[in-house]
């Protein structure tokens, strides 16, 4: 089922736990939603959904996120969904915005934003104030971003369509915070889409890694001094995570890693992979394994530009 090389790589990190990891990687994902607090109070929304017989379980790392326990197929057809009171979003994918913690009236860059799940979440955290510049290269995906923002009633998002690698030329040192939810080999999405596995190869991982380094380098240049950057991917490949952060960290003397604290089961970032040793502070980044919280896999790093 899983390519041999894929398994071999994880055995190096997880040892005996690899089987459990693969078992979780093959299970379907639990469905989860976020209440759109721009349109409705969490308690009011819960009351309405419960009246429809939909059972919800709170996701520990957010006040407005819930796992859907019953009637899974139906949630998309509820009036609450049609009116944009709720948004279907995977539980682990809610973590990067929480780590970035954008505040009201700030200026934020969402460098690889489409289809805008995290953009919408940030807009809610900012209570529709300030401005999020949402960028993506894909026309098609920007269309869904626009659609999602409209449905959620978001007014603080401006949309641009450029190659994120060069955004720093246009917006040097401009933003209070930058989110780079990078394109990746999407290993973490295997639970959602088995096709990912057919496209997976060590070559893809290397290619993504190069792109991610350029994007993160650009993200660092876009943030103002004193500002923060969150780098996230939905893969656990070290070449696309710790190695990317380590490479960019070495290029910028004013950059440091900040420890992430979040009420989810996380594991520290690697400080060594194959022949390469990383900066010890990479330990303060987090790996979210599917078997730990029964979510999608994720990697998240928080950086401060001093």
């Amino acid at each position: 089922m899983f390519p041999e090389k894929f398994v071999e790589r994880y055995r190096k990190i997880l040892g005996d736990e690899t089987e459990k990891f693969l078992e979780y990687m093959s299970k379907p994902l639990k469905k989860s939603i976020r209440v759109n607090t721009l349109k409705i109070d969490v308690s009011e929304c819960l009351r309405r959904l419960e009246e429809r017989g939909i059972l919800l379980e709170k996701i520990p790392w957010t006040e407005s996120g819930f796992w859907v326990r019953q009637k899974e197929g139906l949630i998309g057809y509820t009036l609450e969904h049609i009116l944009g009171y709720i948004y279907v979003q995977e539980a682990a994918s809610m973590i990067p915005p929480i780590v970035l913690a954008p505040r009201e009236d700030e200026l934020i860059l969402d460098m690889a934003a489409a289809p805008g799940s995290k953009t919408g979440q940030m807009a809610e955290m900012m209570n529709n104030t300030g401005l999020i510049l949402a960028n993506d290269v894909s026309v098609k995906r920007i269309k869904s971003l626009r659609f999602n923002m409209e449905k959620l009633g978001v007014i603080n998002v401006a949309v641009i369509m450029r190659d994120g690698r060069f955004l720093w030329k246009k917006y040097p040192g401009v933003f209070d915070r930058v989110l780079l939810d990078a394109p990746c080999s999407s290993e973490g999405s295997i639970r959602k889409d088995w096709g990912v596995l057919n496209r997976w190869s060590p070559r893809l991982v290397k290619r993504m890694s190069r792109l991610q380094i350029s994007l993160l380098d650009s993200a660092v240049r876009c943030v103002k001094h004193g500002g923060e950057i969150v780098y996230s991917t939905c893969t656990l490949a070290p070449e696309e995570n710790e190695m990317v952060v380590d490479t960019v960290l070495r290029r910028h003397r004013d950059l440091r890693i900040e420890k992430i604290k979040i009420p989810a089961v996380t594991r520290p970032g690697l400080i060594k992979w194959e022949k390469r040793e990383f900066d010890p502070s990479l330990e303060d980044t987090v790996r979210i394994y599917p078997q730990d919280n029964d979510t999608q896999a994720f990697f998240v790093a928080k950086l401060v530009r001093e």
Partner: peptide
């Protein structure tokens, strides 16, 4: 389109394709 009053930036200078909600 509608958006909030933003002090930090001149929105016209961002050269965005769209700003806010139609």
């Amino acid at each position: 389109w509608i958006t909030g009053k933003i002090e930090k930036v001149d929105i016209q200078r961002l050269e965005a394709e769209t700003v806010g909600l139609g």
